[in-house]
Write a protein that binds this DNA or RNA. Sequence first.
DNA 1: TCCTCTAGCACTTTTGAATCGT
DNA 2: AACGATTCAAAAGTGCTAGAGG
Length: 448
Amino acid sequence: MAAGPDAYLQGNIRMTLEDLDLWKSFHQTGTEMIITKPGRRMFPHCKVILSGLIPCAKYILLVDMVPEDGFRYKWNKDKWEVAGKAEPQPPCRTYLHPDSPGLGSHWMKQSVSFLKLKLTNNTLDQHGHIILHSMHRYHPRFHVIQADDLFSVRWSVFQTFTFPETSFIAVTAYQNTKITRLKIDHNPFAKGFRDEGTSKKRQANKSPDCFEKRAKEPSVVAEDSKEDSSPGFCQSSYDSYDRDEGDLAKRKDEKSVKEERYSPWDAERQQGVRTDSPAGGDTREIYNTEQLVPTPASYQLYRAHENGKSPSPPSSIASNNSGSGRSCFESRVPDIATVPEHDPSKPRTHEAGPSHCGPQHLPGPQDYSGVLNMTMAQAGKPGILSHHIYSPYSAEQPLGQWSGPGPAQYPPPHPLTADYTTQAVHHGYHHGNVAEWSQYPLFSYSCW
DNA sequence: TCCTCTAGCACTTTTGAATCGT
DNA sequence: AACGATTCAAAAGTGCTAGAGG
């Protein structure tokens, strides 16, 4: 598969954001995503192309939303301004792609769409939609996990990808008319609002002011998208963020993807870094931190050896990126897991499922020197978990096809946020309808 | 008064069942 | 009887707007 420059080669796995141009045009204006009580889809929606997966191995694809910073914003005239500190985080939820777990060949067969992912501002949401705060900035994070099922996840490698141009501000009503215009122009469901649309009735009912205003907007948008990289952003903290991200934006134009290689459960630890200083703190730095859930030896050993050095500082990325962004990221490839050459005719251990071969093949903690902290390394031991999966069926949902061992087999990993600690009962998995999982929160980690 | 949020509206696309033809 | 194509109504997804509420 020919991946564009916006793809990132991470070990073997490459993820490319589809509709990159569309995302860019939104990003340049300042993407806003509507959140509603019943849940609202994203537009543009997240669609990625995957390559480099092992065709006969199973993978789980997840998406979660990560706060960009620790601030709340407001729309003031024509730009976003900081309006104070962020509100306490809502329950952090992860969207599981309905096809999970699926074979690598399945994921690579065509682009993977997260069309049905919905965002809500209802903290009591029972549908498993991702809960966000209005007027806060987020970006989606994609996780590719080689695992037969969700309960194998804990000792599997997380490959995490983010795309800078997918960041957005959650809103309950559009603030920037340019964004509204872009949505109308590109979202087929909004065709009725297009100026050239077929809705004669609506056009006729428009007040002259409204009509005039709308008639002007398209050209404005067109100009902005050409000339102004971030017209809607105030020169205050958001802009300083954006200046930081502006670098990213430039790089992303060359490269268009940030890469993380750690467990999503680690987000809480990172949050301090992320929220410290929106202007001064280099949020990119956290993308260079790496944490792994122990995994089959074929991955981990090679990874451990190749990662003997510290992660590259952001500056090195920037400097390396002076040419093509791709070369920059490729320069980091040696830092990343590489699957050793293998005989395709022979079954590999990890093809039998990480859950079977993971723990017993784990290298000792020393193998992770410079890569993993001890806590993470220990997570590979059965029963010692650094992460925790919230079972949607544990407390609120009927078990259905779920049954089996309780906490004795899957002891709670570590002190958890109070919300889920008591609900975190793990159940055996009989390969039922995993797609249903996507409707429920999966991870207990906090977003910040 | 201002800002944010919500509900109802008109419009569109998507989905799935029913029907028909091969 | 089985399968594929077509039709059509219901469901779901949009932004707009007035009004409520803090």
